[in-house]
C-alpha cells in the first residue's frame, strides 16, 4: 500500500516530463474549437473524422500523430505557420490572438486523437 503511494507520487512528479495524456475535457474543448466558426474553425479548410462539410484547402488531418509527431512543431504550426512557410494561407492563430495558448493546446489534444 505504502509502496503504491510512493510509486504514484513518483509518477505524478515525472509526468510533466513525459507526455501528459489529455483529459477527455481537454479533447472535448479542442473539438469545439476545431469545429466552431468563431473559434479555430479548422474544418473550414481541413477534413477530419467527425467534421461536418469540411473544406480541402489544407491537408486532411488523419493519423495526426504520425503526421506531426513533435508537439512543439504542431504548436508552432498553429501559432504561426507563416513563420515556417511564408506562402501558407493558414491563419496565425496564436500570433494574431485568434486562440489563446491554452486553446491551441486543446486543439492539439483533440487532433492527436484523429
Amino acid at each position: 500500500m505504502k509502496h503504491t503511494a510512493i510509486l504514484l507520487g513518483l509518477a505524478v512528479a515525472v509526468l510533466p516530463a513525459v507526455a501528459l495524456a489529455a483529459t477527455p475535457q481537454q479533447v472535448a474543448a479542442g473539438e469545439k474549437i476545431a469545429t466552431t466558426k468563431s473559434l479555430g474553425n479548422c474544418a473550414a479548410c481541413h477534413s477530419f473524422a467527425g467534421a461536418v462539410e469540411p473544406g480541402n484547402v489544407g491537408p486532411a488531418l488523419k493519423d495526426v500523430k504520425a503526421m506531426i509527431p513533435d508537439r512543439k512543431t504542431f504548436y508552432a504550426i498553429v501559432f504561426d505557420e507563416q513563420a515556417r512557410n511564408p506562402q501558407t494561407v493558414m491563419p496565425a492563430f496564436g500570433k494574431n490572438l485568434i486562440l489563446t495558448p491554452r486553446q491551441i493546446n486543446e486543439v492539439i489534444d483533440f487532433l492527436y486523437t484523429k
Partner: peptide, 20 residues
C-alpha cells in the same frame, strides 16, 4: 486577423473548398 489576401482564397486556393 485571419491574415488572408483576396489572392489567398481566389488565386492560391481557387477551386478548393472552404467548408462546402
Amino acid at each position: 486577423q485571419l491574415n488572408f489576401s483576396c489572392a489567398s482564397c481566389h488565386v492560391q486556393a481557387a477551386g478548393k473548398r472552404l467548408r462546402g
